[in-house]
Design a protein around this nucleic acid. Sequence first.
DNA 1: ACTTAAAAGATAATTATTTTCCTTTACTAA
DNA 2: TTAGTAAAGGAAAATAATTATCTTTTAAGT
Lengths: 135, 135
Amino acid sequence: MNYETLLREHHLKVTPQRLGILSLMHTMGHINIEELYAQIKEQFSSISLATLYKNINAMVENKLVTEVKVPNVKSKYEITKEPHIHLLCSACSEFIDLDLDLHPLLDAASSKSHYELHGSCIVLSGLCEKCQKEL
Amino acid sequence: MNYETLLREHHLKVTPQRLGILSLMHTMGHINIEELYAQIKEQFSSISLATLYKNINAMVENKLVTEVKVPNVKSKYEITKEPHIHLLCSACSEFIDLDLDLHPLLDAASSKSHYELHGSCIVLSGLCEKCQKEL
DNA sequence: ACTTAAAAGATAATTATTTTCCTTTACTAA
DNA sequence: TTAGTAAAGGAAAATAATTATCTTTTAAGT
């Protein structure tokens, strides 16, 4: 993925900090501000938290980045991709992404057999494969 | 609805403040802390915001109340009911509730013809009937 | 290179939420 | 019904999260 053109396409100036943020977001998948700040500081030791917020906000406004809000977990951010479902593992708080063609999943959710509906939001909580095995 | 038994069933002490909160939540539907505080103060002029938070949190933990988190809008709370979809009107920020049998809606969302997918969360944004007509 | 608008960084300010501590109240069981 | 107790309420302070302000630096077009 070319982050430089990605920024340009979204009418955002290209800066080293922004390239770093996008690169991290890409490799880490869903990431929250805290984690992102800890990581980015290894590259840009003097980066300000305000800068991070300003950039994230700018990117979210331009829909380059998407904010994922779910109950009990800090907002996570990801580079915008095709519409999809975030299945939240209730054990390790990792997301598993599923595409929108989720009819069997929805059925499972409403019957509460395998997946638990987390709150009344349609974001579903369940155990990821990793955690499933550890039970 | 009997709020007293509702509280007892969820192992929460019955207090006038809690009855007031539940009553407001029931009549107002989805409501955020700010609105709730403004309303509840008319009944309990000396109620503390901390009390409100403590009660909401207790009720959410006991799943008596559900928190609905969506992008760009303050968290709203509702008395827990059957799993359902919150369709957020992008004009007036009201919710329209839909049951989980939403296959045609999902199709519409993914084709982006009628409903707009809001972020990557499956909570959908669109115009409610009221706003739809005003366009 | 020069110019300019925007971004970065530091810090302060705001806003949102939680904690603390003391008083009051709901519930239990005698 | 009332005495005891654990929990709830209220006020204020503390903490956490986010945004605004201001000055310096930098990206990008001429």
